[in-house]
Nucleic acid binder design. Structure first.
Lengths: 146, 146
DNA sequence: CCGCATCCTGGAGGATACTG
DNA sequence: CAGTATCCTCCAGGATGCGG
């Protein structure tokens, strides 16, 4: 984050010396930087149907495959497996297989995975505050299709 | 958010009177609540390819259609129009058409739209901090496909 | 300048059945 | 228990062309 802020300020060339707080204008560069590559990189990871749900569920502690399957209503085995594989590959979830009979596999968040929780909660908070208003607006616009 | 916190605490039945800070366990209920319907509602809105980019661009001030098109590299006219219509319907963006020749149309964020910026920045910050680590992990797992 | 209509493609994700 | 394999559907989103 800091590197990006510095890079941007170098680009614009001023203001650093004045000790100004970053303006909103500068802040949104975090989103718009690289033509959106940075924000897209994270959206690509979490914007599927299940990732955030799995991460939030694992935040309570390690869980086995079946426990996850039960605690996340509506997910198919296929998508649970797939999403867990992606999360594992990205280093957000650690998979531990115990050589037992019957087999036991536990999934747990890595520190990186845990670090995703706060921004996700920020988003969830925003949703809870504003989604009702959004759906009201949406309902209105259905009535006036022009 | 507060309603949901209260609702959850009512559900679990305790702790309110003890003045305890919400635990992480309780927090993630914001994400997992409704079997993920709440978080899904917002992901459905912002997790397309362009929404956040448009919102972040408009945060600097109202812009005309063509200006947006230029400032968001890679977006097609179709997707710009579509996404703007969605944002307008959801009450995140206000569209103002001036009856001039040639036509002039300006798009600006509504207060609701502006309120999306902070959580989006939280996410962007997370991305900038962790995406390098994620991509390193991803590269590793390519080498050991097992 | 601002956009809508149309056609087309890739990939996310569901359903179902099978396996070590 | 913890997956894999296969098939299928749906739609986001790109390309292109026309219209007020």
């Amino acid at each position: 984050m800091c590197q990006y802020r510095r890079a941007y300020k170098r680009h614009t060339g001023v203001r650093e010396a004045q000790g100004m707080v970053m303006s909103q204008y500068e802040h949104t560069c975090l989103i718009r930087g690289d033509g959106g590559r940075t924000i897209r990189a994270i959206l690509d990871r979490i914007c599927n149907k299940w990732t955030l749900l799995i991460v939030a569920t694992l935040d309570r502690g390690a869980l086995r495959f079946t426990e996850l399957h039960q605690q996340i209503p509506g997910i198919s085995q296929r998508m649970l497996t797939l999403t867990l594989r992606h999360l594992e590959r990205d280093g957000l979830v650690a998979r531990t297989a115990y050589a037992e009979v019957p087999p036991r596999v536990e999934y747990a968040l890595t520190p990186t995975g845990k670090s995703l929780i706060p921004p996700a909660l920020a988003l969830a908070g925003w949703a809870i505050e504003h989604v009702p208003h959004i759906e009201a607006s949406r309902a209105l616009h259905q009535n006036r299709p022009g």
